[in-house]
Nucleic acid binder design. Structure first.
Length: 573
RNA sequence: GCCCCUGUAGUUCAACGGAUAGAACAAAGACCUUCUAAGUCUGAGGUUACAGGUUCGAAUCCUGUCAGGGGCACCA
């Protein structure tokens, strides 16, 4: 398949250059031109607006369009190029070529719609990156689905992609986890344990720790009675990661690399970053920041009371305040390793690093960007997708999520109640910029309210035709695709947009586009299924063969679209 | 107070500065001897929160106002 808009844009630019060379158009720098698929029947299959040329050319744009229409070297797949007031140029695909694309689609198989743009380039997508303290909850799920789908789309665009999970198994939260497991362990042994206030505050109440404790008792009996929290922490961490990986696997997500934040301490990467920032003049030691940005309730006395910390002059890059790199206790904050981690990414030579974060981290990534810029890196190589928060709705009411309180809705819960496919689709089919209301009642419903069924049903219906055709001995041998009609062509036109959907998703880092595309495909498909019969008594054999071939192409497009979304491709439903 | 995101049909959401703002669901009415009705067909539904501005052209860009969400730690 070819990227038709890109090809046609090139063709139009060549025509304009030729017109300028011949003096039919004055010389001027061409502004950006965008050929895109047309929205409306009657306006061609692809079109471009040339009105922007009117001013630099000092000519009527409709005249320019006419000139270009005459000049343009039509590729073999274009039947007609037509100028329309006030300055549009519409392209009509050649129908014979269009019908023949059914074979081209089938021939591409698993890599259908693959692009050349990422060839030879390496991309990394970092997503999920939850510390192993609790099962994945819905808030993380959105980033997980968006990240993995982004990775799949980058692969389709030709990139070699690595999926990475960044985590920290040190720190107070993990200590609390170990301690919580220890308490559950004692409980499981029937030993009462009275928590002190600090413990109660940091206690992880989730049932998963009861399960871990029960397993631990089964494995080691009471021999861990006198062990400290470290042993329990380690045990909990291993179990937690098993659980997280298993959950992710249910929605077909696998990370290639698990990057432990601790290695940045051990390797001296943190110190190196600090030293480089210092040498560049972005570091100072003080009890209070030079710039505090006027945050509310900002109690300088409180900060000053903590002693001298090491600060990064983030405010030099537009940040309202400077940020602490090393606490007065001598421990780095998470910001320092975060910057060191991104330095590490860029040093690994990725051409592109995509980072999927929740909206609550959006200040943090600005600081990381500033750090990279201060160190002389091209911060634009790191692209951050901020996914807005997910609200769970049940019975029209917002369900509160809190991993500490243990009343959260986990990704596992959600999958249990719906299906991996429904979860993937519903979390994907929204722009990352918008808040997502996840209606649990709706997701639980197995009805056509849920577009996931509608899309998969198209794939299933194709499979049904193939089964029945095989049973009746009908084949597509020697299919004459020229026999296909207007409805099939309508589907094929949309099918040919797959490469541009992939290209746009990657260009704008908007993986939700594939979800809407798949739904549009299904919307076009189902009416065709009803009206374009393969096995009807009144369908001549030659027509049946052509239609059967068409449905093979249709199924291939659905299969590819579903796989790009990480969804299954059922044969029956 | 400052920063980020959002405001589009009854609802959930699309629409990379281009032509008549699109789907799905809900609500109204028709279709199953026919490759799966988890489907199809027919209508209806809009001052794109509001006010200015830029532009040949604005849902989209800019400014302001209002409303909702998230953030503004020597927590991660």
């Amino acid at each position: 398949m070819i990227l038709i808009p890109v090809e046609l844009t090139r063709v139009v630019r060549e025509a304009l250059a030729a017109l300028q060379a011949e003096g039919k158009l004055p010389a001027f720098d061409l502004p950006a031109l965008d050929v895109r698929s047309s929205k409306r029947a009657g306006q061609g299959d692809y079109s471009v607006a040339l009105m922007g040329l009117a001013k630099p050319a000092r000519m009527n744009p409709a005249q320019i369009a006419v000139l270009v229409a005459e000049q343009v070297m039509k590729p073999d797949y274009v039947a007609k190029a037509e100028a329309v007031a006030p300055g549009y140029l519409n392209f009509w695909l050649d129908e014979a070529w269009l019908k023949a694309q059914a074979d081209a689609i089938i021939a591409e198989g698993e890599v259908l719609g693959e692009l050349a743009e990422g060839q030879g380039k390496r991309a990394q997508v970092e997503f999920v990156s939850a510390n192993p303290t609790a099962p994945l909850h819905i808030g993380r799920s959105r980033g997980a689905i968006v990240g993995d789908t982004m990775a799949r789309l980058l692969e389709a665009a030709g990139y070699a992609v690595e999926r990475e999970y960044y985590f920290n198994n040190a720190g107070a939260q993990m200590r609390a986890l170990g301690n919580s497991l220890r308490i559950r362990y004692l409980e499981a042994l029937g030993l009462p344990y009275e928590m002190i206030d600090d413990e109660r505050k940091s206690f992880y109440q989730g049932n998963y720790l009861k399960d871990f404790a029960a397993q631990l008792v089964a494995e080691v009996g009471d021999s861990w009675l006198n062990k400290g929290y470290e042993a329990f922490k380690l045990y909990a961490e291993v179990k937690m990661f098993e659980m997280i990986k298993a959950t992710l696997a249910r929605v077909d997500i696998q990370h290639d690399v698990f990057f432990n934040e601790n290695t940045l301490y051990d390797s001296g990467a943190n110190d190196a970053v600090l030293e480089r920032l210092d040498r560049a003049g972005y570091i100072y030691r003080a009890a209070a920041p030079e710039t505090d940005g006027g945050a509310p309730d900002d109690d300088d006395a409180k900060e000053a009371g903590k002693g001298e910390a090491i600060w990064f002059r983030s405010s030099r890059f537009g940040d309202p305040k400077d940020r602490v790199m090393v606490k007065s206790s001598g421990e780095p904050t998470y910001t320092l390793p975060d910057i060191a981690y991104h330095v590490n990414k860029l040093e690994r030579g990725f051409d592109l690093a995509v980072n999927v974060l929740g909206a609550d981290h959006n200040t943090q990534y600005q600081v990381v960007r500033n750090g990279l810029t201060a160190l002389g890196y091209d911060a634009d190589k790191v692209h951050v997708i901020i996914v807005q928060l997910v609200a769970l709705l049940r019975g029209g009411e917002v369900v509160r999520m809190s991993s500490r309180a243990g009343n959260f809705e986990t990704l596992d819960d959600l999958i249990d109640q719906t299906s991996p496919d429904a979860v993937r689709y519903m979390l994907l089919a929204r722009s990352s910029d918008t808040h997502l209301n996840f209606d649990l009642d709706l997701a639980v419903k197995k009805s056509n309210d849920n577009p996931v069924y509608y899309i998969q049903y198209a794939h299933v219906r194709c499979a049904g035709i193939f089964r029945e055709a095989a049973a009746r001995g009908v084949t597509d041998d020697g299919a004459d695709l020229s026999l296909l009609g207007e409805p099939e062509m309508r589907f094929l036109r949309k099918a040919l947009e797959l490469p541009e959907v992939i290209a746009d998703s990657v260009e704008f880092f908007e993986p939700h586009r594939i979800a809407f595309y798949a739904l549009e495909l299904a919307n076009i498909f189902h009416p065709i299924f009803d009206s374009v019969r393969v096995l009807g008594v009144d369908v001549p054999p030659e027509l049946a063969a052509a239609r059967l071939r068409f449905f093979k192409a249709a199924q291939a497009i659905f299969r590819r679209s579903l796989r790009l979304m990480g969804m299954t491709t059922p044969e029956v439903m």
